[in-house]
């Protein structure tokens, strides 16, 4: 398999790319002192609150902490199917 990979010029994603991704993640945690566990909790409660008002497509949910410059952002993409009756 490895020989094939080499022949095809295939390369696992460059280690610098891996480093950059891991860095982004760890820096947000460092900056906010937010553990993965708390993040999971935040995510679940957010979904719960949103679900009270609208029906959502759970497979399409993307909630991530990310950085824009030195500012931290909680980016929340939640596909909404329809409103729930009042």
């Amino acid at each position: 398999m490895n020989v094939f990979k080499q022949l095809l010029g295939y390369r696992e994603s460059a280690s610098s790319e891996v480093a950059k991704k891991r860095l982004r993640f760890v820096l947000v945690q460092d900056r906010l002192h937010l553990s993965p566990d708390r993040m999971r909790q935040l995510r679940e409660e957010l979904i719960e609150v949103i679900s009270k008002y609208v029906e959502i497509d759970r497979d399409g949910i993307d909630i991530v902490l990310t950085g824009d410059g030195r500012q931290n952002l909680l980016r929340t993409d939640v596909p909404v199917v329809r409103a729930k009756p009042e």
Binding site: S15, S16, E17, K20, R24, R70
Partner: peptide
């Protein structure tokens, strides 16, 4: 190492640290 993709480039570092 940068050419090989095995070292963060200056642009990556600046991007992440944003200063």
């Amino acid at each position: 190492m940068i050419k090989r993709g095995d070292m963060l480039d200056t642009a990556d570092v600046v991007d992440v640290l944003a200063i």
